[in-house]
Write a protein that binds this DNA or RNA. Structure first.
Lengths: 68, 68
DNA sequence: ACTGAATACTAATTCAAT
DNA sequence: ATTGAATTAGTATTCAGT
């Protein structure tokens, strides 16, 4: 079983390293690391983390963490 | 009748001056200036302008224009 | 307190009309 | 090329369960 902090850390890593464009997408990425979570949870996590969606050069919007 | 540029300029002004939190909200603000538009149009306008949603101190997310 | 299912809300896109 | 209506996609919140 994975804890909340572990999951949120994983999310931070993923968001920083990859171009995460949606919560469903993020859920898949987490799953591929063996972390199960639903959209509701991921939404709350992103909120906790303070992630925002920003427009990137490629044109689409990706999640980012202001501090980085 | 209002033109596209007029409407987009109005949107920029509103976004810069006020805390616009949603497209429905923006539509109302435009309406109060006598500018009619639907959600589809406002969505495209925000895209043209390059507006993004950012988290502000108050906690909620508002539209902002990166250049400012 | 944390989570998921379901729901409400918000935003983007499609499709047709002008 | 621009727009609105309707649709689809995406996100936040509520509500109940643990």
């Amino acid at each position: 079983m994975t804890t909340k902090v572990q999951r949120q850390c994983a999310i931070v890593s993923l968001v920083v390293e990859l171009e995460v464009t949606s919560q469903p997408g993020l859920i898949e990425l987490l799953a591929s690391e063996g972390i199960e979570a639903t959209q509701a949870t991921v939404s709350r996590d992103l909120d906790d983390i303070g992630a925002v969606k920003v427009r990137v050069a490629s044109g689409n919007t990706v999640y980012a963490i202001p501090e980085f």
